[in-house]
Design a protein around this nucleic acid. Structure first.
Lengths: 143, 143
DNA sequence: ATACTTGCAAATGATTTGCCAGTGT
DNA sequence: ACACTGGCAAATCATTTGCAAGTAT
């Protein structure tokens, strides 16, 4: 019922910076930890824990993603009713309720909207954990 | 991975209108169906299927909520990682990533934000299925 | 009478936990 | 060495499904 806690912005520019971050915290750079990070840095598209495990143990992957998320190296988003998607990027998301398509959005494109929300509600909004859900132009026109 | 399909706006003003809607569609007004609707109309706060079942079989409640949602009589929202919350109301939601608090918002209060989103992304946004997530004033000031 | 519905048990999907053996530092 | 990790099995939580028996219309 409660949301994930507020995490600082992601700011490890590359794999090495991320690994260094782990060491700083006294955490270990284990084989599977490195594999998860390598996969995420290699292809920045958000992916499920299952996909990241790629045949190996999913439980460890979930544990690692949790740790990495606490360190602010990884983030996850829920784009619908399926499994959560993990990524190293600072994107925000929109998804269409009609056709199911989703897009990653550069945060600055939402600054006007964020300002309007701040004005209306006093909240500093971020669409990183849940997307903005709506109808895309096509689905809006045809529904 | 796909989102719930677009549903028409909720517009059954009261319990009787809702029951009538069921009959119109050739569906039956069964005891447990009536119980779910009575509970939802009696207290408009969003509730879990478990709470609505209130000791009786949850599977039936889920089945009924599905049907009612297809008819546009009920809607559900995901406010965090817990179970979905069902309600008969047309509210939109904001929730704070810091303290976990959430609020139901009158749709018109978000019209400016909606306009900004339409302008920026071409999407007609609705915050009924996922809330706007952000930091409330207090958490923003203290984080 | 005949669909539609329920209740209960069992299945499924996503994620978490316990535990002990393995391994980075 | 020692604490941190991984693998695997089992547990948990939310939700769905199968099926025989019950009931609105």
């Amino acid at each position: 019922m409660t949301l994930a806690h507020h995490v600082p912005p992601l700011d490890a520019p590359d794999l090495d910076a991320a690994l260094e971050r782990l060491r700083e915290k006294g955490l270990r750079v284990s084989a599977s930890r490195r594999l998860v990070l390598e996969a995420l840095y290699a292809d920045r598209r958000p992916r499920t824990a299952e996909q990241l495990a790629n045949g190996t143990d999913v439980a460890s992957v979930y544990r690692n993603l949790d740790t990495l998320e606490e360190l602010g190296l990884v983030r996850h988003v829920h784009l619908g009713h399926g499994p959560g998607l993990y990524s190293i990027d600072e994107y925000e998301f929109v998804s269409c309720d009609g056709c199911g398509a989703y897009e990653a959005i550069e945060p600055q494109r939402l600054d006007e909207a964020r300002a309007a929300i701040l004005q209306a509600l006093g909240y500093h909004a971020r669409f990183t954990h849940f997307p903005i859900v709506g109808l895309c132009e096509y689905c809006h026109a045809h529904s």
